Simulated assay, not measured.
Amino acid sequence: MERYNKKKIPRATAKRLPLYLRNLTILDAKGVVRIKSKELAEITQVPSATIRRDFSYLGELGRSGYGYDVTFLIKVFSDILDSNETSHMAIVGFGNLGKALANNNFRRNQNLIISCVFDTDPEIIGQTIAGFYVYSMEDFERVTREKNVKVAISTVPSEHAQEAIDTVVNSGITAILNFAPDRVEVPSNINMRYIDLTTELLTLLFFDRNYKDTPLAITS
């Protein structure tokens, strides 16, 4: 497989690659062999011109009139995203959302592994819940280093998010997924993504009420 210069891929394009991979994997499971940019645009709700431009950064991925080979695209995007490389993750905050994420344990990609969970509640620290031993945040740096954790997923409410994220950052982890909608302060070398469930639900409801003929793509 050709190795790509990932630094030359525009950030906007890079953000869409997981969306393409997710939907292509679904198509492959359904037995779809090839697809054209227009068809992929209908599924992902990304304009076909944008798709073709995104793909052009990665070389010659398709043929005019034929479209794109689904299996080949999956290999290309998997290689670029390192989706076949094992990534160990930690959950910070083991409330209802944390438990739901741990129970799901990213079944769609067996290389994404939740290795440890943390909380500040003394009633659950030291307990094994849903198959996970709950560590104290005081042990965060030691445990995550021992388990080679590279990604932290924070489900801590906004009022306590900054303190939790500070602990994560001080441990040396630079990739953080934050489910608290309020922004927190982090150094410039930290890659932080926010997921605001309220905003996502409002967006979903808006499209359901007003754009029933063009539904949103499934992106997660």
Rank of each mutant, 00 (worst) to 15 (best):
R107C: 07
N104V: 06
I91A: 04
F132S: 02
D79I: 07
L97Y: 03
N105D: 14
R22V: 06
L58M: 15
E146A: 12
M89L: 15
R52N: 15
K36G: 13
E138W: 03
H88A: 07
I91H: 01
R107N: 07
D28Q: 09
V33T: 12
K150V: 12
V32M: 09
D119Y: 06
T144G: 07
P18N: 10
I91V: 15
I91F: 01
N103T: 15
V70H: 00
L97G: 06
K38M: 09
V76M: 03
I80L: 06
V117R: 01
T50N: 12
D54I: 04
V32W: 08
E85T: 15
G31P: 06
Y57S: 08
M137E: 13
P122R: 10
V76E: 00
S158Q: 10
S48L: 06
D119R: 04
E123N: 15
G62Q: 11
Q110L: 14
K36S: 08
Y68F: 15
R63L: 13
N96A: 15
E141F: 03
G59E: 11
T44K: 02
S56E: 02
T25F: 02
I35A: 08
C116V: 06
Y57T: 05
K147T: 04
R63P: 04
V70N: 01
V156C: 10
D28T: 05
A102Q: 03
A14G: 08
V33N: 09
C116W: 00
Y133G: 08
S48F: 14
R34S: 15
D54F: 02
K147E: 03
G31L: 10
I51V: 08
N23D: 07
A14R: 09
Q127V: 06
R34W: 11
V70G: 00
L58I: 13
D54E: 07
D28F: 02
K147L: 14
F132K: 12
L19C: 11
E85N: 11
K30F: 08
V134A: 09
T144K: 05
E146R: 06
R108N: 12
V156T: 11
G67R: 01
K36L: 07
S87R: 15
R63D: 13
I26D: 13
F118Y: 13
A49D: 11
F55G: 02
G31V: 09
V151F: 05
H88K: 12
P157Y: 12
F132G: 02
R63G: 05
V32Q: 14
N105H: 14
V143K: 02
A90H: 13
I35Y: 03
K36V: 13
V33M: 09
G95Q: 01
L81G: 10
G95S: 12
V156S: 06
I80S: 01
F140E: 07
L112K: 06
N23G: 09
